[in-house]
Design a protein around this nucleic acid. Structure first.
Lengths: 351, 351
DNA sequence: CTGTTAGCGCTTTCAG
DNA sequence: CTGAAAGCGCTAACAG
């Protein structure tokens, strides 16, 4: 009685319970779980059945203590930038949880406390308490302080976004250049010869990549000496952006299509086009970037570039766990292609 | 040497290292951490210093194994509905991580594997592996299967959204009725007498609450016998919604303002208003709901209702941990007020 | 192929 | 107030 009182254990079955139920010893049960091939088939069946019946699962804390593997991945979420609403936060996180789950790992969310900018203490705590096997980072920039810190601590990680040359090249990223070039392909294929680009002044690598891809696309189609219209505007200042786009639409060589750096900018383009009395899609085609859910709700529905989030997540998990397990890992980063989702904002044009 | 080889331990310091460094025994170090008052001040100082110096933190697995407390909260994320983009996924999750962190807990993400609809196996695994102390659920509906399942398993939980009468009333929710009534207050205060409502046909409780709050607000201002304009349309069918709203705007008693069930519907209202050649804000005021980042980017910037996500998260964590610790918990749910953020889409009107 | 033994790092009685 | 001893549930050596 006192003993029962003393352990406030949840009704969870222990390995011993299973062993007793199956008439074997603890270690046999352990073997069934961790090295099934070393157990005789009939014994295995009996034990497996007992496991099922009792709903047994090893206590992860005990297992971790013993093996050193936590089966948990720490996810360092980016701080959401309200001006470039992050498609990652929704879709990528889901993809990451799925990918980790497929490998028997869970995802623990890490964020510096509200107000604190430096994520390193939060990272250190997790490492010191040995709560994670490694980290996945999103929105990684070249000189990312988090990467440097984690790398120095000698903890495995994998980054969504290219890391600096000096640090481990454990990253996966979207081929933004190629993606934006394919946007130009798409528009050129629909007969557009004057294509504007609506980007952002931000120096974020993916933003500069998109502009670069746009230029490359124009060149590929011999449009680089046709009126190239590049417009970079201050983030968040929608009204000014609308004005600028309207100016372009009134100019002599009015663009018949716009490629944009993200879906919100595409929305701004919609507004400017309408303000000029033109019809989006028919008069001026628009392509967004990110393919956030909003795209399907706009009128006309917005053609956009969908990031391969599931692929990225899977690849990140694969690389991270390879490091954790001490398996050989590719020493180079990986670039994944994005996919253009054609919708009503870029209709096929009459010849 | 063989011994060193055999344990692939991360360089983390152990309690023994600290004890040795401070010249005390292990248990004294443990006491310093878990019962500081039982340690002599000078000893405490010496040990604390050693802890700092070594960057020591208790191994969470070992601690969990011993105490039974995991210091981890499982978060059951809602499956994101593309037609009612969930403001929770971003803001609420951040708020939850913060609130949990303030109580020394971390957040583990739970989702059924991609494709699988039933979240219960995922929940059961977590419980059986004793990986979490309890759950926080979001987007909880009255007859929520997850709640029933977790409650039956006898595991502590706290829900964002009201649970059914039969189940434990461990929930926190937004006062949607009051919030929408205050939207009417806001509009009535700006002189509007004919206010339309743009909602959704969905039977989601918060949506019906918003409509109810709208009606209550009208009544409060004696507007309930003025032309009450309620419009419920099918989710996602933007084009049809625009048409319907345009119809209202052409009618005899044209509304001068719209309250809407969410920000995307407000965006649809913008579109309809413009299509009628009217100006949003000046001719027709619009109020959204959720205050997603988009609100600040629209032109004019959208007045919207901001959910008290931080308050909700804090209260959920408080209630959950009270259960975990066996402290008394309030047997009733809690309703928190939302806040109206006035912007340019509802300008003060000239008399 | 199965059973015995030891110990991961920590907290918690219980004596001193 | 501090030291010794036990054991949480599990896995990995080794012996049978």
């Amino acid at each position: 009685m006192t003993q029962a009182k003393r352990r406030p254990r949840r009704p969870g079955a222990t390995i011993e319970d299973v062993a007793r139920a199956a008439g074997v010893s603890r270690q046999t049960v352990s073997n069934v779980l961790n090295a099934p091939h070393r157990v005789r088939p009939d014994t295995l069946a009996r034990v497996t059945q007992a496991i099922e019946r009792l709903g047994y699962q090893p206590d992860q804390s005990a297992r971790s203590l013993r093996t050193g593997s936590r089966r948990i991945i720490g996810y360092l979420a980016p701080v959401d930038d309200p001006f470039d609403p992050n498609p990652l936060m929704g879709g990528f996180l889901e993809a990451l949880v799925d990918a980790a789950g497929a490998e028997g790992h869970r995802v623990l969310l890490v964020r510096p406390p509200h107000g604190a900018a430096d994520p390193r203490p939060a990272i250190d705590e997790l490492i010191a308490a040995r709560q994670v096997d490694g980290f996945v980072l999103a929105d990684v920039l070249h000189g990312d302080a988090r990467v440097a810190h984690i790398a120095e601590a000698g903890v495995p990680f994998a980054a969504f976004g290219r890391t600096a040359p000096g640090t481990p090249q454990q990253w996966v990223d979207v081929d933004s250049v190629g993606a934006m070039a394919s946007v130009v392909d798409h528009l050129a294929g629909r007969g557009h010869r004057r294509i504007g680009y609506l980007g952002s002044t931000s120096e974020l690598p993916w933003m500069t990549d998109r502009l670069e891809g746009f230029s490359a696309g124009l060149r590929r189609h011999g449009l680089d000496d046709s009126p190239v219209l590049e417009l970079t505007t201050a983030d968040g200042d929608t009204a000014r952006t609308v004005t600028a786009v309207r100016g372009l639409l009134r100019g002599p060589d009015r663009p018949t299509a716009f490629a944009t750096g993200n879906d919100m900018l595409a929305l701004t383009a919609y507004e400017a086009i309408r303000a000029e009395g033109l019809t989006v899609g028919r008069d001026v085609a628009v392509v967004g970037f990110h393919d956030i859910p909003l795209c399907r709700l706009l009128n006309p529905r917005l053609t956009s570039v969908r990031l391969p989030l599931r692929g990225i997540a899977a690849e990140l998990v694969r690389r991270l766990l390879a490091q954790v397990r001490g398996e050989p890992v590719p020493g180079k980063g990986l670039l994944l292609p994005a996919e253009l989702i054609a919708r009503d904002s870029t209709p096929a044009r009459e010849a």
